[in-house]
């Protein structure tokens, strides 16, 4: 087996699109499940069938999130550039979630704790993005120092 054949075997973890796709699955799945959960929690007296449907949608979102997290931890690592992209995605998703939960709380006059939780998640995503950018900047600085 030569190096090119090995590279072909490693095509999945080496593909930046696959790495970002795994991050999208993790973030999108988690955010989707949270948004459906917010609707479910704040809707009074839902019929049983609707509750089952909500539960199914939450399970699907969590399954995608689980798959994304599994892929990122076991198969497709995020490198510095990917982490910045994933950081922006997380900030975008948690911003949408915060706006959505605030709108739902205002419209239904209940569930006021949910926008606070979403804001906390947004804060975490922002801190994560700042760290990812700092790590990437440090690596870029070192790369230039070494003449790269």
């Amino acid at each position: 087996m030569n190096a090119d054949e090995m590279l072909a075997r490693l095509s999945r973890p080496l593909s930046p699109w696959r790495r970002v796709a795994a991050a999208v699955a993790a973030i999108g799945g988690g955010t989707g499940a949270a948004a459906i959960g917010v609707l479910w929690i704040t809707e009074p007296q839902l019929p049983a069938r609707t509750q089952v449907a909500f539960a199914g949608l939450v399970a699907i979102g969590l399954a995608w999130a689980g798959y994304g997290i599994w892929a990122l931890t076991r198969r497709t690592p995020l490198f510095a550039r990917d982490r910045v992209v994933a950081g922006w995605l997380a900030v975008g998703a948690t911003t949408l979630l915060a706006v959505f939960t605030a709108a739902v709380a205002v419209a239904r006059q209940r569930g006021w704790a949910l926008p606070a939780v979403a804001l906390a998640l947004l804060l975490l995503a922002a801190v994560n993005l700042v760290r990812a950018r700092a790590v990437r900047s440090e690596l870029l600085r070192r790369k230039h120092e070494l003449g790269g």
Partner: peptide, 18 residues
């Protein structure tokens, strides 16, 4: 330098490392 470029996620550097 090669490892730093890999850590940045540069595809050609990863291929070169392999």
């Amino acid at each position: 330098l090669l490892v730093i470029r890999c850590r940045l996620g540069e595809r050609d550097a990863l291929a070169r490392l392999v």
